[in-house]
Amino acid sequence: MKMRALALVGAAVLAALPLTAGTASAATKCPSGDVCGWTKANFGGSKYTESKPTPGCFPMNGARSVSNQTKYRVTFTRGQSCEGAHFDVAPGHYSAKTPWPVVSAAVWGP
């Protein structure tokens, strides 16, 4: 009986592993040079992509997770027109859970 219980626990742990790995790899689904946002934390829900953004401000979709795959710093803001509370994401980095829905973002470039 104990062996069967251990086998079931082991199978459950193995079944959960792909879900964990899938969440981590979701951040890589933002193409190089783009800024991406997802409507849910951990890269879930609908995806929004700003392809090859130029320096300046652009609207987001209320993103709850974001990825910056540009070569520039990106500031994600709570308000429209890149105003209000904000946080920065360095080039090649991401945030799996934003502190609030992201309404706009600014790319800082040359």
Rank of each mutant, 00 (worst) to 15 (best):
residue 106 A to R: 15
residue 84 G to Y: 04
residue 32 S to C: 07
residue 108 W to C: 07
residue 31 P to T: 09
residue 110 P to L: 06
residue 7 A to D: 00
residue 90 A to L: 12
residue 86 H to M: 13
residue 67 S to I: 07
residue 36 C to V: 05
residue 13 V to E: 05
residue 10 G to V: 11
residue 60 M to L: 09
residue 46 S to Y: 00
residue 26 A to H: 14
residue 72 Y to A: 11
residue 49 T to R: 09
residue 81 S to N: 15
residue 24 A to S: 00
residue 76 F to E: 06
residue 75 T to F: 12
residue 41 A to G: 13
residue 93 H to Y: 01
residue 94 Y to K: 08
residue 107 V to G: 01
residue 63 A to I: 06
residue 84 G to S: 12
residue 96 A to T: 08
residue 64 R to H: 13
residue 84 G to Q: 00
residue 105 A to G: 02
residue 14 L to M: 12
residue 6 L to D: 01
residue 77 T to Y: 15
residue 63 A to L: 03
residue 86 H to E: 05
residue 82 C to W: 10
residue 99 P to G: 02
residue 15 A to G: 02
residue 16 A to T: 06
residue 90 A to Q: 13
residue 11 A to G: 13
residue 3 M to Q: 10
residue 106 A to S: 08
residue 90 A to H: 13
residue 51 S to P: 07
residue 64 R to N: 12
residue 25 S to V: 14
residue 65 S to T: 04
residue 84 G to H: 05
residue 17 L to W: 10
residue 47 K to W: 08
residue 28 T to W: 12
residue 12 A to S: 14
residue 1 M to D: 01
residue 95 S to Y: 06
residue 101 P to Q: 00
residue 65 S to K: 00
residue 69 Q to E: 14
residue 64 R to L: 14
residue 77 T to Q: 14
residue 105 A to R: 03
residue 39 T to K: 07
residue 3 M to R: 09
residue 51 S to F: 04
residue 33 G to I: 06
residue 44 G to V: 13
residue 9 V to L: 15
residue 105 A to C: 02
residue 19 L to W: 09
residue 75 T to H: 13
residue 74 V to N: 00
residue 25 S to N: 12
residue 82 C to F: 11
residue 78 R to T: 12
residue 46 S to V: 13
residue 88 D to S: 14
residue 40 K to A: 10
residue 8 L to Y: 08
residue 97 K to G: 05
residue 81 S to Q: 12
residue 2 K to Q: 14
residue 102 V to Q: 11
residue 66 V to M: 04
residue 7 A to E: 06
residue 110 P to T: 01
residue 69 Q to K: 09
residue 9 V to E: 08
residue 4 R to F: 14
residue 21 A to S: 02
residue 58 F to C: 04
residue 8 L to Q: 11
residue 5 A to V: 14
residue 66 V to D: 00
residue 39 T to S: 06
residue 10 G to M: 14
residue 40 K to M: 11
residue 18 P to M: 05
residue 63 A to T: 03
residue 34 D to A: 09
residue 83 E to D: 09
residue 25 S to I: 12
residue 78 R to Q: 15
residue 83 E to A: 12
residue 108 W to F: 15
residue 100 W to M: 05
residue 7 A to S: 12
residue 90 A to I: 09
residue 43 F to V: 05
residue 53 P to Q: 10
residue 107 V to C: 07
residue 67 S to W: 10
